[in-house]
Design a protein around this nucleic acid. Sequence first.
DNA 1: TTCGAGCGTTAAGAACGCGTCAAGATGTCG
DNA 2: CGACATCTTGACGCGTTCTTAACGCTCGAA
Lengths: 225, 225
Amino acid sequence: MPRLLIVEDEPALRRALAINLKARRYDVDAVGDGATALRAAAAVPPDLAIVDLGLPDMDGVDVIAGLRGWTSLPIIVLSAREGQADKVDALDAGADDYVTKPFGMDELLARIRAALRRGGADIAAEPKVITDDFTLDLAAKRAFRGGEEVKLTPTEWHLAEALVRRPGVLVPGTQLLAEVWGPKYERETNYLRVYVAQLRRKLEADPSQPRHFVTEPGLGYRFEP
Amino acid sequence: MPRLLIVEDEPALRRALAINLKARRYDVDAVGDGATALRAAAAVPPDLAIVDLGLPDMDGVDVIAGLRGWTSLPIIVLSAREGQADKVDALDAGADDYVTKPFGMDELLARIRAALRRGGADIAAEPKVITDDFTLDLAAKRAFRGGEEVKLTPTEWHLAEALVRRPGVLVPGTQLLAEVWGPKYERETNYLRVYVAQLRRKLEADPSQPRHFVTEPGLGYRFEP
DNA sequence: TTCGAGCGTTAAGAACGCGTCAAGATGTCG
DNA sequence: CGACATCTTGACGCGTTCTTAACGCTCGAA
């Protein structure tokens, strides 16, 4: 499930948000001030941050800027301030969305979904990848084919995720190698051949004629949903 | 400058928006109903769409869904409706942001900047090249002609990209050779003849009378959208 | 008309990338 | 320590793609 970081100084609202979002099965991390927020985000990068503009220790805009310095995760701003100028400042500092208090939980949830969706983290929100032949539950790390569970090794999972994350898109071999084995392995095309073959053997209905893990000769591999 | 598509039925607001955004140097396309919007977007894919929910001919949510069917461009929704349910519906249909009327132009501009920033205005709508005869999806590395997918080899892709990246511009043969095969191959005009012919055979409706990959005798080649 | 230059077409061998298999190396758990 | 799973590495065959060369065509100039 996507990991959310809530930065809200008012304890009542912080708890309410945390409970509501946890009920929606999000992984929630809730902190009360900007410094703690930046530290928490650095320790375990969340998939999305919800930041209150009115914080005790620093301006919310600075928190946004601090996050934007090193990550591109979606940021939703909460604020009681009605002013246009605040909105503009926050958005230009790098926020992705701005919600004015009081707000409804439904709206916030919808905006979270929208932000995660375009952030690409939405695979986490809907962590089940389903095809005609097999199903991958990325969150639970379980794979099924024809009702039977199939066991994938860690490397196989890593490779499968790298492909499944961009459905229909061609991923160059070098990029897959860098993502799964590290940048130094970009030339070890052997690894790809071996592990793609194993994925196909375990997941495809007919491994010799793969329908979902497709080779684009000379270019890379593609996952077809 | 990024291209914006405005879908707003009220003429006064439509004009006001268009004027304001044009003053900000955006390329603006303003239409008054959903059907025209979908047609305009298909003709010239914009970098961002601003959609009013209350349209005369169809629900704004359907416009959003219609756009989402084939493109991932950022969509900002305008609405006078205060209801939570409308926001949730629009966001879940694929909208990226929701602005309630009345709104300030500064806020809208800030939200446009935020949407373009994360959409990566360049990659969002750019990598699809569409002609009467074929479609190239440069990001996904897929080519279609008449609904059927066509396979291009690595070199063919490379050459196609070099031409398609500069629509309507004449590219000298030496430049193409240098870009695809390397500076040392600038005299191997053979390669060009062979591979341009293959591109035409795979993509043009009538390869013997090419309409999109045009030869400029003595000069080079040109891609006509 | 003849000639030559530039372009389109075709075909063949060479080179490359991919799938496959299998054995050795490494790691993990009882 | 041993058993087992996983990862790494090398080698081979096969199909595709690239490279290269030759030929025919058109068009403008001599």
